[in-house]
Simulated scan of single mutants.
Amino acid sequence: MVVTDGRPAPKEELPNFDLSTYLKERKVQVEEALDLSLPLVYPEKIYEAMRYSLLAGGKRLRPILCLAACELAGGTVQMAIPTACALEMIHTMSLIHDDLPAMDNDDYRRGKLTNHKVYGEDIAILAGDGLLAYAFEYIAAQTQDVPAQRVLQVIARLGRAVGAAGLVGGQVVDLESEGRGDIKEETLTFIHTHKTGALLEACVVCGGILAGVSNSQLEDFSSYAQNIGLAFQIIDDILDITATQEELGKTAGKDLEAQKATYPSLWGIETSKAKAQQLIAAAKEQLTPFGEKAIPLLAIADFITARTH
């Protein structure tokens, strides 16, 4: 359940766990797997465009969440790495398309020129399409030591998360809401639980599915992910106001320029920060039954509100 009111709980120290080292090690694993997943073949131009954005850096938070969830549920990195790569392919597709002139019209992403600025709008659209299609192929073809029924569940979950019931639907309502001064909290929450939260939730849930978690455990995973997803977006809204272009790796102040409703515009910055902290506390509570095995996911939850880019 997503909680959005009340005072934030204080952060607790997580024993003997270095999140920075964990994220670096996992990021290296993900980067190596992504590089191997998409070789440069004919026609080179489209593969260059796909690799340009897929290998452009970033926190790799989504694939890392998938790996951490799978390990928490008793699975292995090897079981989850194809799905983790596919999640980053889908996320990269969403960024390529989001940056297009017909959408958010941005020139920079992750500190580099956006895909359409390098390859043109036509190739950028096709690069996003290529990554989306390949993501599902990659899960089906490369996942090993996982029962076929679980792989099928993962593919179905991802399809829903990225389609009209998820990311696409959230983007449509986001576009329709630009420039309107009457956007309510319910609409804003719909946008972000679909546009951002649905894929983040899929990352955690799919990691659990691959490892064979029970239905009740899957509900805990889902609630954790819903809460961190909304907190993630609240912090994004704050950073769009407070961070520089260099810190963000993309154009700062785009939400204000596009007259988008954001959580700070509804609540103010300090209340938004407090709401994000409370969402993180609620997320962490969902993982209490897992004990110390949940430490990586607990630390990632705290990282979401502490990040500066």
Score class of each variant (00 low, 15 high):
residue 2 V to F: 10
residue 4 T to Y: 13
residue 7 R to G: 08
residue 7 R to V: 08
residue 9 A to W: 03
residue 10 P to E: 05
residue 14 L to M: 00
residue 15 P to Q: 11
residue 15 P to V: 14
residue 16 N to I: 11
residue 18 D to I: 01
residue 27 K to N: 14
residue 29 Q to D: 15
residue 30 V to M: 00
residue 32 E to Q: 12
residue 37 S to E: 07
residue 40 L to I: 07
residue 41 V to G: 06
residue 41 V to N: 05
residue 42 Y to Q: 13
residue 44 E to I: 06
residue 45 K to M: 08
residue 46 I to P: 12
residue 47 Y to D: 09
residue 48 E to W: 04
residue 49 A to H: 12
residue 50 M to P: 11
residue 52 Y to Q: 08
residue 52 Y to M: 08
residue 56 A to Y: 03
residue 63 P to E: 09
residue 72 L to N: 02
residue 72 L to S: 03
residue 72 L to I: 00
residue 73 A to K: 11
residue 73 A to G: 12
residue 77 V to I: 13
residue 78 Q to M: 12
residue 79 M to T: 11
residue 81 I to E: 00
residue 83 T to Y: 00
residue 94 S to D: 05
residue 95 L to W: 01
residue 98 D to L: 04
residue 99 D to S: 02
residue 99 D to F: 07
residue 100 L to A: 04
residue 101 P to Q: 12
residue 102 A to G: 05
residue 103 M to A: 06
residue 106 D to S: 12
residue 106 D to P: 05
residue 106 D to K: 08
residue 114 T to A: 09
residue 115 N to W: 06
residue 116 H to M: 04
residue 124 A to E: 07
residue 126 L to V: 06
residue 129 D to I: 10
residue 129 D to L: 10
residue 130 G to D: 06
residue 131 L to N: 03
residue 135 A to R: 02
residue 135 A to Q: 01
residue 140 A to S: 05
residue 145 D to M: 07
residue 149 Q to P: 14
residue 150 R to D: 01
residue 150 R to W: 01
residue 151 V to L: 02
residue 153 Q to G: 15
residue 156 A to I: 15
residue 156 A to M: 14
residue 157 R to T: 15
residue 160 R to L: 15
residue 170 G to K: 04
residue 170 G to W: 02
residue 171 Q to E: 14
residue 172 V to F: 04
residue 175 L to P: 00
residue 175 L to Y: 03
residue 176 E to F: 06
residue 178 E to M: 07
residue 179 G to C: 00
residue 179 G to D: 02
residue 179 G to E: 00
residue 180 R to Y: 10
residue 180 R to H: 13
residue 183 I to K: 11
residue 186 E to M: 11
residue 190 F to N: 12
residue 192 H to E: 03
residue 194 H to E: 11
residue 195 K to V: 10
residue 198 A to T: 10
residue 198 A to P: 06
residue 200 L to K: 04
residue 207 G to T: 00
residue 209 I to R: 15
residue 210 L to Q: 07
residue 211 A to Q: 02
residue 212 G to F: 05
residue 215 N to K: 15
residue 218 L to V: 13
residue 218 L to T: 15
residue 219 E to G: 15
residue 223 S to P: 09
residue 231 A to I: 01
residue 239 L to V: 08
residue 248 L to H: 06
residue 254 K to T: 14
residue 255 D to R: 01
residue 264 P to N: 08
residue 264 P to C: 08
residue 265 S to G: 09
residue 267 W to I: 09
residue 267 W to E: 06
residue 270 E to M: 03
residue 270 E to H: 02
residue 271 T to K: 14
residue 272 S to M: 03
residue 276 A to H: 01
residue 277 Q to G: 12
residue 278 Q to G: 12
residue 278 Q to P: 09
residue 279 L to V: 09
residue 280 I to A: 09
residue 282 A to V: 11
residue 287 L to G: 14
residue 287 L to M: 13
residue 287 L to D: 14
residue 290 F to T: 08
residue 292 E to T: 07
residue 294 A to F: 12
residue 294 A to E: 11
residue 295 I to A: 03
residue 296 P to T: 09
residue 296 P to C: 08
residue 298 L to H: 07
residue 302 D to L: 00
residue 305 T to K: 06
